[in-house]
Design a protein around this nucleic acid. Structure first.
Ligand SMILES: [Mn+2]
Ligand SMILES: [Mn+2]
Ligand SMILES: [Zn+2]
Ligand SMILES: [Zn+2]
Lengths: 128, 128
DNA sequence: CGATTCATGAGAACGATTCTCACGCTTGGT
DNA sequence: ACCAAGCGTGAGAATCGTTCTCATGAATCG
C-alpha cells in the first residue's frame, strides 16, 4: 500500500512532466534511457500503471491499441483532442457530453456508467 | 479488390448475425467451430477486418484492449452502450455529441475529426 | 544500524493479432 | 462445362505490447 520513493519513480515522473504529448511506455522508456536515467522497461510499465491508478496520469489507446500516457494540467475528469500524427493534445472539458452520457445510461437502465470519449484529428502544424 | 463468396465468409456473416452482443474474433471462431462450420482463426480475423472496412460490422475495444465486433441494426453512424459483464448492447444515436465533437475540433483548429465515444455500464439483468 | 518488505530488472512468458506461403476454390471468359 | 488466373484459406510461425517470475537491491522505520 505504501509508495516508496525510488530513483526510478522520480525519473519516470520527471520524464512524464517533460512531455507535452501522450507517450507510450516504450517511448518513455527510451526517453529515460536517452537521458541517462536507466530504468527497466517492466518498471516503467509498473510505475505508469501505478500513476494511472492514482489518477496522476491519463491513459488512452491509439488506433493500434497501444496505451498512451500523459500527465495532464487539470486533475479533474476531462477528455482529449489528440493529433493523430504528432499526438499534440488539447484537454477538453465536456459538461455537455457528461450529461448526455449519464442520461443515456439511465434511460436504458444501466448503472455504473463509464464513458470513453476521445477526439482525434489533425492539428494545424501537421497539416502544413 | 474483389470479394469472392466463400463458404468461410458466409459462415462468419451468419455467426455474426446470430449474436446480439459484441464478440471477439476468438469468440466467433469458437462459435463457428461449435456449429461445425470450421473456419481458420486467421480467416476469421481477416474476414472481420474486411467487414469492418466495408462498414458492415462495428468494432470497439474493451478495457483489456481486445477488439470486439458486432453487426448492428442501424447502418448509419452511431455509438454504443455496452454492459461490462454480459456485453448486452444498446445502439445509441447521439446528435448532441456529434455536434459537440465537431465544434470542439474546429475550435482548436483540428481537421479530419474522428471520435471514439462508447458508454459502458452494468445492465439491469447483470445487476440481479 | 539491522530487519522488514516493497521495488527493481533481465528475461521468460503471454496473448491477441498478423504474417507466410503452399494449396484450393471462386470467378470470368471461352 | 472447361480452364486459366489469382484471390482466399489455414496451420503454424512470427510480432509485439504488456505482464509475470524471482533473485537481488534499496527505502523505511524503530
Ligand atoms: Mn467525461
Ligand atoms: Mn458519433
Ligand atoms: Zn499534429
Ligand atoms: Zn449485462
Amino acid at each position: 500500500m505504501t509508495t516508496r520513493m525510488t530513483r526510478q519513480r522520480a525519473a519516470v515522473a520527471e520524464a512524464l512532466d517533460q512531455q507535452d504529448e501522450f507517450r507510450s511506455a516504450q517511448q518513455l522508456h527510451e526517453v529515460l534511457r536517452a537521458r541517462g536515467d536507466s530504468v527497466g522497461l517492466a518498471t516503467v510499465y509498473r510505475t505508469l500503471q501505478t500513476f494511472a491508478d492514482a489518477q496522476e496520469v491519463d491513459q488512452l489507446r491509439n488506433a493500434d491499441g497501444e496505451v498512451l500516457y500523459r500527465r495532464c494540467e487539470r486533475v479533474e475528469h476531462h477528455h482529449h483532442l489528440v493529433c493523430r500524427s504528432c499526438r499534440r493534445t488539447v484537454e477538453i472539458d465536456g459538461p455537455t457530453v457528461e450529461a448526455w452520457a449519464a442520461k443515456v445510461g439511465a434511460a436504458h437502465d444501466f448503472t455504473d456508467i463509464d464513458h470513453t470519449i476521445e477526439l482525434w484529428g489533425t492539428c494545424a502544424d501537421c497539416r502544413g
